Amino acid sequence: MADTALGTGGNLMQALKTRMHWHQSRQKLLAENVANADSPGFRPHDLKAPAIAPGQAGVVMAQTSPSHMGLSGQRGGFNGTNAQRFEITPNGNAVNLEDEMMKVAQNQSDYQLAASLYTKGLGLMKIAIGKGR
């Protein structure tokens, strides 16, 4: 039973580690987008989030009361995640500084969350094996 619990913790730690590496790579790419905001013909790039490995469940919402919103998967209201916000400039540059800076700030916040969870997980593992406090 201890192996199963440790294995699950190991999978979580590996997922957090993968997520932190992704955020580091994405931050570099977003910084390049900002740096090239005035470069003629430059198109911004972004990284696709790492997929959840087979056999690992993601976080899902549970409808605990019939009065709660349904789990249809549809989002109410406007979904602006894929909306094109601005046109390409006359010199062919498609970087929108406001959007890029929002992505940078969100990415940094998400990285800090993953790093905090990773640190807490390590602390819990140390306590579990008797090396902590």
Rank of each mutant, 00 (worst) to 15 (best):
Q24A: 12
S25E: 15
R26K: 14
R26E: 09
R26W: 03
R26A: 05
K28L: 11
K28M: 06
K28N: 14
L29K: 03
L29W: 01
L29N: 03
L29G: 01
L30T: 01
L30W: 02
L30P: 01
A31H: 01
A31G: 08
A31Q: 08
A31S: 13
E32G: 03
N33T: 06
N33P: 04
V34H: 02
N36E: 04
N36S: 09
N36A: 07
N36I: 04
A37E: 06
A37L: 02
A37Y: 01
S39M: 12
P40C: 08
P40I: 07
P40A: 10
P40S: 06
P40G: 04
P40Q: 05
R43W: 05
R43T: 14
P44M: 05
H45F: 11
H45S: 14
H45A: 15
L47K: 03
L47D: 03
K48G: 03
K48R: 14
A49W: 03
P50C: 07
I52T: 15
P54A: 10
P54K: 09
P54H: 04
G55S: 07
A57K: 14
G58P: 01
G58W: 05
V60F: 06
V60N: 10
V60T: 13
M61F: 11
M61W: 09
M61D: 09
M61G: 09
M61K: 10
A62Q: 14
Q63T: 04
T64V: 11
P66E: 03
P66K: 07
P66R: 04
S67F: 05
H68P: 00
G70H: 10
G70W: 00
L71N: 14
L71C: 04
L71M: 14
S72F: 02
S72G: 15
G73S: 08
G73Q: 03
G73T: 06
R75C: 00
R75Q: 14
G77I: 06
G77L: 05
G77H: 08
F78L: 11
F78V: 10
F78Q: 11
N79Q: 13
N79H: 10
N79W: 01
G80L: 08
G80A: 12
G80E: 06
G80R: 07
T81E: 14
T81I: 09
T81H: 11
N82Y: 10
N82T: 15
A83Q: 14
R85K: 15
R85G: 02
